[in-house]
Design a protein around this nucleic acid. Structure first.
Lengths: 238, 238
DNA sequence: CAGTGGTCTAGACCACGCG
DNA sequence: GCGTGGTCTAGACCACTGG
């Protein structure tokens, strides 16, 4: 049996040594840590990579290495997750940015999911969510255009889609089903989330319908950074 | 804006080049790939690490680098996941290994979850699951000892716990609730799963009760390797 | 025993962020 | 402009797997 590698022992030491560092304060630089522990910088990097894999630190080129915190995000039959409320409650500064909605013909899978006829149009809304200025999740909502006429003219870049559905269109949106899994994001989304490469992210899919009529209102696909969100998906009776 | 790094371009090239390689055949060695693409071995390693992060390849010391396949594993209100059936259906060779059950006093959290009185005993069963000889998941089941007397004498190393509960004890076990999230496993479990370091795994928690009486039978915590299982957790009406 | 991937060193250049 | 982390090279030794 082989002894534990240097970089794994170092990762444990670094973890303990800087456990109480404020979240805004950087750890010593990789060069400094190398000197401190008497090892090559690449060995320090291997140790930090282990901690980064475990979502305990985050490294930012040009700025430094920082401790992280994850936001618990529960998804269950009776839980309607609110991004803004969750983050605010934990002392973070959340922000949502809507792109301009685009209207186009629905493809086969969208028609299937939303129960639309062959020539239906859908309106697609891309959103990016930020915490303290960093992009942490994307969401793509697909809505039947007939149910949200002139959405592009109605929604502002920082509006909540849920609020617009309620106030402007008079719907009562409820989550009909949700699904979570891990998946490698498309390159474009990886770029928005400022990932290196395309590491797997948490993929949430869901269908929102109207409480009164049962009409299908919105199909949403969302990628969440697992280093930021501790997503807990709950099934069954609680 | 900076051009894409060499190792990321290489990872894409390698992916395309060896997309059709049989699962049992290794890719060329890191040294060979370095020579083929005219880059240093560490650059090849960075490319392979990217593919490993995305669970597209798996590297085995002493043997080589192989393409991987993931098993879809659905968890939902009406779905009782069966490891053995799922894997067999996909052409894999599943095996389960039970450790010897241990009986000890229940701790506070176990009493809370299982609804047990202060001085109750629990019987704890550790299991490891293998596919084609590789450890892919662990499970720890905690059962009220009073409901499964002499479990240690009854269960064989390769028995299914579900089957023993049905046949020997006459229960009809049903899943009452399940929960999935990502978590760094304890060092001991990381070792069993042969992970390097302690990268986050899929943590499944669940409660099994008796269909007729509603008695709580089993609390289970399970770690699944995300490179092996594509766990899909479904919530809501389908 | 030969070949594999895992670890570690020494050094270099670069893009990025912040002041 | 300076210090940060990101990338890349060259070379070395090791533990593990398989025949």
């Amino acid at each position: 049996m082989q002894a534990e590698a240097t970089y794994l022992k170092l990762s444990q030491q670094i973890l303990e040594q800087y456990a109480d560092l404020p979240l805004q304060r950087p750890l010593p630089s990789e060069h400094e840590l190398g000197a401190l522990f008497g090892v090559n910088r690449q060995t320090i990097r291997a140790a930090l990579e282990e901690l980064e894999r475990r979502w305990l630190i985050r490294r930012v080129k040009g700025s430094g290495t920082f401790r992280t915190r994850r936001y618990e995000y529960r998804i269950g039959p009776d839980i309607a997750p609110s991004f803004t409320a969750t983050v605010r409650a934990s002392g973070g500064d959340p922000r949502t940015e809507n792109a301009k909605p685009v209207t186009r013909p629905a493809n086969a899978s969208e028609r299937e999911i939303l129960g639309l006829p062959a020539n239906a149009q859908v309106t697609v809304l891309e959103r990016v969510r930020f915490i303290d200025g960093a992009a942490v999740s994307t969401a793509t909502s697909v809505l039947p255009s007939a149910r949200v006429p002139r959405l592009a003219a109605v929604i502002a870049p920082d509006d909540s889609l849920d609020a617009v559905l309620r106030r402007h269109y008079g719907y009562t949106p409820v989550r009909q089903w949700s699904q979570s899994r891990l998946a490698s994001p498309p390159a474009q989304i990886a770029e928005v989330l400022r990932l290196r490469g395309r590491p797997p992210q948490i993929l949430l899919r869901g269908l929102v319908s109207c409480s009164e009529t049962g009409q299908k209102l919105e199909y949403v696909e969302s990628f969440l950074r697992p280093d930021v969100f501790d997503v807990v998906t709950e099934v069954g009776k609680w």
